[in-house]
Nucleic acid binder design. Structure first.
Length: 601
RNA sequence: AGCCCAGUAGUUCAACUGGACAGAAUGCCGGAUUUCGGCUCCGGAGGUUGAGGGUUCGAAUCCUUCCUGGGCUACCA
């Protein structure tokens, strides 16, 4: 899969593994290619660097664990220079490598540009769809998780040597926006957002909530006058008005379409501001109001070619029983389109636009089934790219008080949250008072960088598929496994390197270095693998946890070792070079999460 | 009812996808600065990995039966 793998360090370790394997093969005179031999870094509590698990070899050796281990250690040890010694603990054969091995590896990567990133001869093009809001209300915390996941995974795909286009589908039509429109006509007094000094999306969202309140009230009145709950839901006058407006919209009624355009424009202006704050942008926006018609065409074509079928009531559906799923309706009996209809249209349209290799949909896990169905349908329609469509499914963000409910206005608003987190970064920084010589502009940039870094890191360090319990008051820490903790470590290293005056990071590879320095090098050497895994598993959290491991190890190192005051200039040079490399990996990894790191904080 | 996902220290999360004594953070308790940035570091207590059974050299991880929470099973999005 990683056709363009060209990482030297990875290769060096691979070569070592290969050497070990061929030693074993020649010793037992056998072929090991169908035995799954596992190598791993040796755990810290044991002596060694690389570990081979020898249980699987017992079949071949036909000897006891102990004898097998001893046979192998005598054999391999004597044949491979890099291996200084080895020891056997239980079924684990630990190899102790010459320190030079690690120093040489570090030396090879220390000045490489974009260390860890893959370059490919033939990059593939991926589309990443995320955000995809409705236009009847502002963005909330759930959208923030979605946006930073989408943004981060896009960066990760690029780091894997591919090309990415970021797209969204804007759900700009349907009953939800009609609700806001009706409420504005009824209660809005022709006001516009600036009259109330509000962002456009908040302004429109305000009317959506007004609609729901009024709707609720009318339902209660109807029930009190003897209606059933079901009737009340359907017959409430304001709901009838909304449905009527949807119908008018579909008939292209001028007044309705003008109103629709006006209100959507307000919303887009608001979204734009929020995306800017989040540092999110898109290469192309798709609008449901434009793609749903194309979806209908796809469905009708599918009907003609016999992939879909027409029901007695004239609706069109597809049978998915052959793949273990239910029948799915694709077009209503009155010919109007459904969610899946426009998603089909959007997907095919995108492939026409971009001729992409694969597409990643960043959408919440409540739509797992929907995407399973969508991909199967695309497959039935014979689109070859359908098996390169992936759903990056993520868990909900819940509040301590329960689920967020936008209808009731019970949400953590994206703008509020961003402002709040930045102002908290500000007050913490002021308390510490280390920025006195900085201009106000720079200070404000820094607060924003710290606050948003905290938020992004907090949401990205968690495995996407897990739900997040988010309490706005206390869940954004600046200590421990957090963004600011990492940013601080970075700034401190930059300060150290600056002070050292060293800019040519070369060192002797026959130095004596400590075990902890070897540990740091090993972590650094793992970075390319982490980048690849996070793409394979579509999980930025792997990168977040990796950076944290690196930072924790480094902070311990920094605390317990003098660097600049050492007499041996070779040691100083090595330690500064190592520190510099650590800071570069931190910066690179954080950037993959869409987080920036400050030179000072 | 069926299907999908999750369940790990008080809390929030890890665990290289089957590997060594399940690790961090936070909170609690106790320590460290004649020092390159203390938003730092070190130590302690804290676990029957929801429960039972199975598979094997080895299980938080795979299979199975339950329990709990969430989601989906729309001619909603």
């Amino acid at each position: 899969m990683y056709d363009g793998r060209n990482i030297f360090t990875k290769k060096m370790i691979d070569i070592l593994k290969k050497d070990i394997i061929s030693c074993i093969e020649s010793y037992y005179k056998c072929d090991l290619s169908d035995i799954d031999l596992q190598f791993s870094y040796t755990k810290q509590e044991f002596e060694g660097d690389i570990t081979l698990i020898i249980f699987p070899l017992l079949k071949i050796s036909k000897k006891s664990l102990k004898e097998t281990g001893e046979d192998l250690s005598h054999n391999i040890f004597s044949k491979i220079d890099t291996i200084k010694s080895c020891n056997l603990v239980h079924g684990f054969l630990n190899f102790v490598l010459d320190q030079k091995f690690w120093l040489q590896n570090l030396d090879k990567i220390i000045c490489t540009y974009n260390y860890g990133f893959l370059k490919r001869k033939e990059p593939k093009l991926y589309l990443v769809e995320f955000s995809s809001p409705n236009t009847n209300k502002p963005l909330h915390l759930g959208h923030i998780r979605n946006n930073i996941l989408g943004d981060s995974i896009s960066r990760i795909i690029e780091a894997n040597g591919h090309e990415v286009r970021k797209v969204q589908i804007i759900n700009d039509r349907g009953i939800h926006i009609c609700k806001s429109m009706v409420a504005w006509e009824k209660f809005g007094n022709k006001q516009i957002p600036s009259d109330k000094n509000m962002k456009g999306d908040h302004f429109v969202g305000h009317f959506y909530i007004m609609f729901e309140k009024q709707y609720q009230k009318e339902q209660e009145d109807l029930i009190n006058s003897g209606c059933s709950e079901k009737e009340a839901k359907l017959e409430a006058p304001i709901m009838l008005e909304a449905k009527d407006m949807l119908l008018k919209w579909e008939q292209n009624d001028k007044h309705t379409v003008d109103l629709w355009n006006k209100m959507n424009k307000w919303v887009y202006e608001g979204f734009e501001e929020t995306y800017k704050k989040l540092n999110i942008c898109f290469d192309k926006n798709y609008y449901e109001s434009e793609t749903y018609k194309y979806g209908k065409k796809i469905v009708l074509d599918g009907l003609n070619s016999g992939v879909f079928q027409k029901e007695e009531d004239h609706s069109i559906s597809v049978s998915l029983e052959d793949v273990g799923l239910d029948k799915k309706t694709l077009l209503r009996s009155d010919g109007t389109s459904l969610y899946i209809t426009q998603d089909l249209g959007t997907a095919v349209l995108r492939n026409q636009d971009y001729n992409f290799f694969g597409m990643i949909y960043v959408v919440g896990n409540e739509q797992d089934y929907h995407f399973k169905v969508l991909f199967h349908i695309l497959n039935k329609l014979n689109y070859k790219w359908s098996d390169q469509c992936h759903h990056l499914s993520y868990g909900m963000v819940d509040l301590p008080s329960g689920k967020m409910k936008s209808r009731e206005g019970k949400v953590v608003d994206a703008d509020d949250l961003l402002d709040d987190i930045v102002s908290r970064a500000k007050s913490t920084s002021l308390e510490l008072g280390k920025l006195d010589d900085m201009s106000d502009d720079k200070k404000n940039d820094l607060y924003s960088l710290i606050g948003k870094g905290a938020l992004r890191y907090h949401l990205l360090k968690i495995d996407p598929k897990k739900n997040i319990m988010f309490s706005p008051e206390d869940s954004i820490d600046f200590n421990g496994n957090t963004g600011p903790f990492i940013q601080y470590t970075f700034a401190r290293i930059r300060s150290l390197v600056l002070k050292s005056g060293i800019s040519n990071f070369k060192f002797k590879t026959d130095l004596n270095i400590t075990e902890q320095e070897v540990r740091l090098i090993k972590i650094i050497l793992k970075y390319p693998e982490v980048i690849q895994d996070s793409f394979k598993l579509l999980s930025p959290s792997l990168i977040a946890n990796f950076i944290y491991d690196l930072v924790k190890e480094y902070n311990n190192y920094y605390q317990n070792n003098q660097i600049l005051s050492l007499d041996d200039e070779h040691q100083v040079c090595f330690k500064v070079s190592l520190s510099d490399m650590v800071s570069r990996v931190i910066e690179s990894g954080m950037n993959l999460l869409g987080i920036f790191v400050p030179q000072k904080m």
